[in-house]
Simulated scan of single mutants.
Amino acid sequence: MEDTTNLSPKADASLYNGQPSDTGLSCPSVGFTSRTPSISDDVRYGVSVENVPAGNKRWFVLRVSYGRIDKAKTFVKAKGMECYVPLQYKEVRKQGKKRILTTPLLPSLIFVHAAAEQVEALLHDNKVMANENSPLLSYFFNHTIHRQDNPDRNPPLIIRDEAMNNFIRLTSIKNPHIIPVTSNNIQFKLGDNVVVTEGEFKGVHGRVARIAGQQRVIVELFDGCLVATAYVPKEAMKKIMIKDIENILL
């Protein structure tokens, strides 16, 4: 864990946001059907990543082998690529002083912003060492569709810029009450699509739900991968239509 005692209320929106350690947990899933348009059209409609124009960057979701988030981040950055590792912040008291410790929010995943051919080259260089059982990085596939050029295979999961910006906006806030959502802590079906209009979560958009007895906004990055804000009062939200989500100024 990283000790960040003197954190300001909000994090720098930089993509390079800390050096977390991997606990090996997978992305939480609550089993709801996605209503957030977060997956890139290039993937949703079965277009192979090989057909993405050269130099056209996308947000790729990559799996990280157990306990190697730090190494994965260093490896990606050494290749000159942008990456994002969301953190979770926990308040603890030690010897009467409040401290904030960080752990990975989604400890088995790293998000890489690059062109398809760059990611392919990254994974090609991602060799299994003699003392390791698996490669450092691998594709996180979109199992909801199949590739047009190979119907027996799924394409890599790619996230829309708009959805990734919203996710980064939420997870770069150093609030210990931002949590990944599981079926155990969500108390009723996800409700209205809203945008937060004031407070530290201003600009974050998602769906309303009650978690741990509090009204919160759920951001769904991709199907089954959800993160909740801290408590948001009703008067700090504005209801929006799904078709208007991508028109929100991020």
Rank of each mutant, 00 (worst) to 15 (best):
P9V: 01
P9F: 03
K10Y: 09
D12K: 10
S14I: 06
L15S: 09
Y16C: 04
Y16T: 09
Q19K: 12
T23W: 06
G24I: 10
S26F: 14
T33G: 12
T33E: 14
I39V: 15
G46W: 05
V47C: 05
S48K: 01
N56H: 09
W59H: 07
R63T: 13
G67R: 05
I69D: 01
K71P: 00
M81F: 14
E82I: 06
E82T: 10
C83R: 10
C83I: 10
V85L: 15
P86I: 11
P86C: 11
K94N: 03
K97D: 02
P107N: 03
L109Y: 12
I110A: 05
E117H: 09
L122P: 03
L123W: 05
D125Y: 06
N126M: 02
N126C: 13
N131C: 00
P135R: 09
L136I: 01
S138H: 04
Y139I: 05
H143K: 15
T144I: 08
H146A: 12
R147Q: 14
Q148M: 13
N150E: 11
P151K: 14
R153C: 12
P156E: 12
A163Y: 07
I168D: 01
T171Y: 09
N175A: 13
P176D: 12
I179L: 15
V181Q: 10
S183I: 15
S183N: 12
N193V: 02
V194T: 02
G199F: 09
H205A: 11
R207C: 13
A209N: 07
A212E: 14
I218C: 09
E220Q: 12
L221V: 11
G224E: 05
V227R: 01
T229I: 01
Y231P: 04
Y231N: 09
K234E: 05
K239P: 00
I242V: 14
I245R: 15
I248H: 04
I248K: 06
L250R: 07
